[in-house]
Write a protein that binds this DNA or RNA. Structure first.
Lengths: 205, 205
DNA sequence: GCTCGCCTTAGACCATTAGTCTAAACCGGC
DNA sequence: GCCGGTTTAGACTAATGGTCTAAGGCGAGC
């Protein structure tokens, strides 16, 4: 866990460290990122780094959490899902997903960070570090799915763990594909609509 | 690329090396596997290992390729897909997928190996090593999808790269979920049927 | 039977990694 | 001015993947 002392640092030094970490992790992914390089770039000593963070995984988890929080703060929270019928459910979801993707295309570094996260998250040895991030994401999808089941938009004849796993798999594949397309503001809505329609087809009642 | 000299080795020594590598990679995944441990376990020297293989990625790629070839040899090749209508297409695919999963549950080490492969394959820095494996897999899915489009079982209004990416993402998620369930011979067919129905829903015309 | 030359092997060595630890520097309170 | 806890510097460790050189092994030609 990140040490509280880190948050007591002058903001500019916090940002210097986080920026260096973001550059490094976004450029190389978790495994191939060098903590030593982050330390050099940030201009602090190894002792200080380990005084602020438990280690590489801790820094990474904190960075992802912080950046994700910023992203969701920019986009806003997910609107209420279980008012209305199935069509309304999917429309709301599509709109929200579109806004998320807009925000993501605007910050390619964050996209790279999440791409690396998606790649690593399946590795069991890494899940310990993923911890609350993964949990939050799963929780988010789980809530959306159960809301969809309440309004009859999502089938409920399968184990929810399977639905969650498949939706996450689809979502990650779509995110990566979408980022690789570098979609413009004109094409993005249509693509997002297609993606949601595929998810809808997969999990519809 | 694996050096031809490796295949000229006595079979038992080849198998000693491959078995050691399989144990290590299946237990720890690609990144956390230690090549030095493989070398020790196999009872060869570092010089020999690097005389047979270009390096860690090369050994891993060769191992996956070999094991995959064995799996497909056990299961047999995919039956002809574009005879009949859409329902026939999905029935054939389901049956084949079921056989693959049967074979996979029978060899948990191979399942672990492929799980690690799935986790690593999204990392761009790693794709160079994936190379022909990834290509073969993509090619396989691509062929199935175009066959499905010919018989009207698969929509053709989306970029095929998107369809491929999404189907791969779903497939990987499903494989991982399925392996984590440790399904018995009684439950497996029903689960596989559910999985195929989700893919069908996602990509149907 | 001997020797030459090439294929193979052994393992020391290198740069780099994440992470540990100790000693010094700093700085506020008295 | 100095005392004591907080913070920093960076040497150090164990392990990694990968390189390289020198020796061993062994068969062909004579």
């Amino acid at each position: 866990m990140v040490r509280p002392r880190f948050t007591k640092l002058p903001l500019e030094q916090q940002q210097a460290i986080l920026q260096a970490a973001l550059d490094e992790f976004a450029a190389h992914g978790f495994h191939d990122a060098s903590l030593n390089r982050v330390i050099d770039t940030a201009g602090i000593s190894k002792g200080s780094m380990y005084y602020y963070f438990d280690g590489k995984e801790d820094l990474y988890a904190y960075l992802v959490r912080t950046e994700l929080a910023g992203l969701f703060a920019r986009v806003g929270t997910l609107p209420e899902l279980d008012i209305g019928d199935a069509d309304a459910f999917w429309a709301v979801l599509e709109d929200y997903y579109l806004q998320l993707m807009r925000a993501l295309t605007a910050s390619p570094q964050l996209a790279a960070l999440l791409r690396g996260w998606a790649a690593a998250s399946k590795n069991p040895a890494f899940q310990a570090a993923q911890g609350d991030i993964e949990q939050a994401s799963l929780h988010w999808i789980e809530q959306a799915l159960t809301a969809g089941q309440r309004v009859g938009a999502v089938r409920d004849d399968l184990p929810s763990s399977l639905l969650i796993a498949v939706v996450m798999g689809m979502g990650q594949a779509m995110d990566i594909w979408l980022m690789s397309q570098q979609p413009g503001e004109d094409t993005l809505p249509g693509l997002v609509s297609d993606l949601i329609s595929m998810i809808r087809g997969a999990v519809s009642a």
